[in-house]
Amino acid sequence: MRPVDPLAEVRAITRGTVQAAMEVLAGIRPIHQLARRLDPRCLAALQHRAALIRREITRTGNPALARLHRNSTVRSVRVCEVRDGVYEGSAVVVDDVRARAVAVRLERSKQVWRVTELVIG
């Protein structure tokens, strides 16, 4: 069995989680798919933001809002260990409308990485 490089593992988890979160905001991925990766507070905040976006699109019919978060691509990911079992990372995401920064904090608990902070710019 090959030893796991924690930095590479956290980088991959960060990339996948950020991509999935952007897809939730775009309305093309169900939020429950992130339930195992995000802690309950982060999951609730992401769900709330997605609901606000959907509500505003329905209310205004603004085509620019409908393009928000569409075709998101994670361009780069950087992570660093802040203490044993805790990493912080950042990602640059580009979509149809703009580029944005995303910050995450991952903590290892019972051999599972959990996102405990998710801030989408």
Results as ranks from 00 to 15, higher is better:
Thr73Leu: 13
Ala99Pro: 04
Leu34Gly: 01
Arg108Met: 07
Arg100Phe: 08
Glu81Gly: 09
Val79Tyr: 03
Cys42Pro: 05
Gln33Leu: 13
Val86His: 11
Val82Pro: 11
Ser76Ala: 14
Ser72Met: 05
Cys42Gln: 14
Arg70Asn: 03
Ala50Trp: 06
Val86Tyr: 08
Asp95Gln: 11
His69Asp: 13
Val94Gln: 14
Leu46His: 11
Cys80His: 11
Leu52Tyr: 03
Lys110Arg: 12
Glu107Phe: 01
Asn62Met: 04
Leu43Asn: 03
Glu56Phe: 00
Arg70Gln: 14
Pro30Asp: 15
Arg105Asn: 03
Ser90Val: 15
Ala44Gly: 14
Ala101Tyr: 08
Ser72Gly: 13
Arg37Lys: 10
Ala101Ser: 15
Arg83His: 15
Val102Pro: 09
His69Thr: 02
His48Gly: 14
Ala91Trp: 05
Asp95Glu: 12
Leu52Met: 13
Thr60Asn: 00
Arg108Cys: 07
Arg67Leu: 12
Val102Asp: 08
Asp39Tyr: 01
Thr73Asp: 06
Ile57Gln: 11
Val94Ile: 15
Arg98Val: 04
Pro40Gly: 02
Arg108Gly: 06
Leu65His: 06
Lys110Pro: 00
Arg70Met: 04
Leu43Lys: 05
Arg54Pro: 04
Glu81Thr: 10
Arg83Thr: 15
Asp84Lys: 13
Ser72Arg: 03
Asp95Lys: 11
Ser76Glu: 12
Gly85Asn: 15
Asp39Val: 05
Ile53Arg: 15
His32Pro: 00
Arg100His: 08
Cys80Ala: 13
Arg108Tyr: 02
Ala64Ile: 08
Ala45Ser: 09
Arg70Asp: 06
Thr58Ile: 01
Gln33Val: 04
Arg98Met: 12
Arg100Gly: 12
Val86Pro: 13
Glu56Val: 00
Ser109Met: 10
Ala91His: 05
Gln47Gly: 07
Arg49Phe: 00
Arg37Asn: 04
Arg100Trp: 03
Val104Ser: 12
Arg98Cys: 09
Val102Leu: 13
Thr60Arg: 00
Val86Thr: 15
Arg55His: 09
Thr60Trp: 00
Ala91Asp: 04
Cys80Gly: 13
Leu43Ala: 06
Val93Leu: 09
Arg75Ile: 12
Ala35Glu: 12
Ser76Lys: 05
Ile31Thr: 07
Glu107Gln: 10
Ile57Leu: 02
Val82Phe: 05
Leu43Arg: 11
Leu34Phe: 03
Arg54Tyr: 02
Arg55Thr: 05
Glu88Ala: 08
Leu34Met: 04
Ile57Ser: 00
Ala51Tyr: 04
Gly85Glu: 15
Gln33Tyr: 08
Ala66Leu: 07
Leu43Gln: 15
Glu81Val: 09
Val104His: 10
Arg108Asn: 05
His48Asn: 09
Leu65Val: 03
Arg78Ile: 05
Val74Ser: 02
Cys42Ala: 12
Thr58Phe: 00
Ala103Ile: 05
Glu88Phe: 07
Pro30Phe: 10
Arg59Tyr: 00
Val102Ala: 12
Arg41Trp: 07
Ala35Trp: 02
Val93Pro: 03
Ile57Lys: 09
Leu46Gln: 08
Arg41Glu: 14
His32Lys: 07
Ala64Arg: 13
Ala44His: 14
Ile31Arg: 14
Val82Asn: 10
Arg36Asn: 08
Arg55Met: 09
Thr58Trp: 00
Ala35Met: 06
Arg70Phe: 01
Ser90Trp: 08
Arg83Cys: 13
Arg78Asp: 13
Ile31Gln: 12
Arg100Leu: 14
Ser76Gly: 10
Ala45Tyr: 07
Val74Trp: 02
Arg67Lys: 14
Arg70Leu: 05
Ile53Gly: 03
Arg108Thr: 03
